[in-house]
């Protein structure tokens, strides 16, 4: 239960990190908070030749509001975002979700972008990023590109990230007037990975979107009109469409039931908290 040997680069600026990643190619990996990567190293599920530590790069340590976008740098810890004074006002969905991400001892090190890069199907922050229509900014030595969250997440723990490339920030649209946001989750114990997690966004015209994590390989979205007739049928169809599987934590049937019930409650909450 100890990591295999690797070279370690504690980058102090972005170009150092990008050079090391470029040089290392597919055998190099970013280490951010280490809260998913170090367990994988300890279990030897990952054996990178080089780890590039990005958490001491000052330009990645910022949370910035630019117009209606909140930009969160790759070195920003989950706990830092959690205590960002504007969180409740600007990102109410993230505020509701973030205390569900592991335990405080993990959020003190884990980064927001690391969770996005890891792309666990149950993870709360990728779910929020997708639900809110956020984007991911990717850098390699001579190229920057911005990818919509819905294109970035490609499968279970698989993303559009290429070798030699890293996430430098994610950008999340801030709260819009008259829109309601709600988040709910069921896990075995508080801090465990979600069995089902639901994020709902209700717009001023009464239409809404439900995004569900923990069931399919990536979070999935259901758009609903303002007219609520037949809503339960749509939720039921959606629950089946997610193709839940049985695993150690829950049966497929239990997950479907949670999608229907938790989905309905979360939507209701979002509709009632529009302001």
């Amino acid at each position: 239960m100890k990591p295999a040997p690797f070279d370690y680069v504690a980058a102090t600026d972005l170009s150092e990190a990008l050079d090391a990643l470029q040089e290392g190619g597919s055998d190099a990996r970013v280490i951010a908070g280490g809260q998913s990567l170090v367990p994988m190293l300890n279990m030897r599920l990952a054996r990178p030749a080089t780890l590039v530590d990005i958490t001491r790069i000052p330009e990645l340590s910022r949370i910035e509001a630019k117009g209606d976008q909140i930009i969160i740098g790759a070195a920003v810890r989950q706990a830092t975002l959690e205590s960002w004074p504007d969180l409740a006002d600007r990102l109410p969905l993230v505020r509701a979700a973030i205390s569900w991400v592991g335990h405080t001892q993990l959020r003190n090190r884990g980064t927001v972008c690391g969770s996005v890069a890891h792309a666990d199907p149950s993870a709360e922050l990728p779910l929020c990023l997708l639900a809110l229509g956020g984007t991911v900014t990717l850098r390699r030595r001579r190229k920057t590109r911005t990818v919509a969250a819905r294109d970035f997440f490609q499968g279970m723990m698989s993303t559009d990230l290429a070798p030699g490339e890293m996430i430098t920030s994610v950008s999340i649209p801030a709260r819009k007037q008259g829109t309601g946001y709600a988040f709910r989750e069921v896990a075995r114990r508080h801090g465990d990975f979600a069995i089902v997690a639901c994020a709902a966004i209700a717009r001023p015209d009464g239409s809404s979107t439900l995004t569900v994590g923990g069931v399919a390989d990536t979070p999935q979205t259901l758009d609903l009109p303002a007219d609520t007739t037949g809503r339960d049928d749509r939720l039921n169809e959606f629950a089946w469409h997610l193709q839940a599987r049985d695993d150690l934590h829950a049966t497929a049937r239990y997950r479907r039931d949670l999608v229907r019930r938790l989905g309905r409650t979360t939507l209701k909450e979002a509709l009632s908290c529009r302001d």
Binding site: D53, L106, R109
Partner: peptide, 16 residues
């Protein structure tokens, strides 16, 4: 505690 915050010592590299 690292800089006052509780964290997992098993998920931190010594060099960090």
């Amino acid at each position: 505690q690292v800089d006052g915050a509780p964290v997992r010592a098993c998920l931190m590299l010594a060099q960090q």
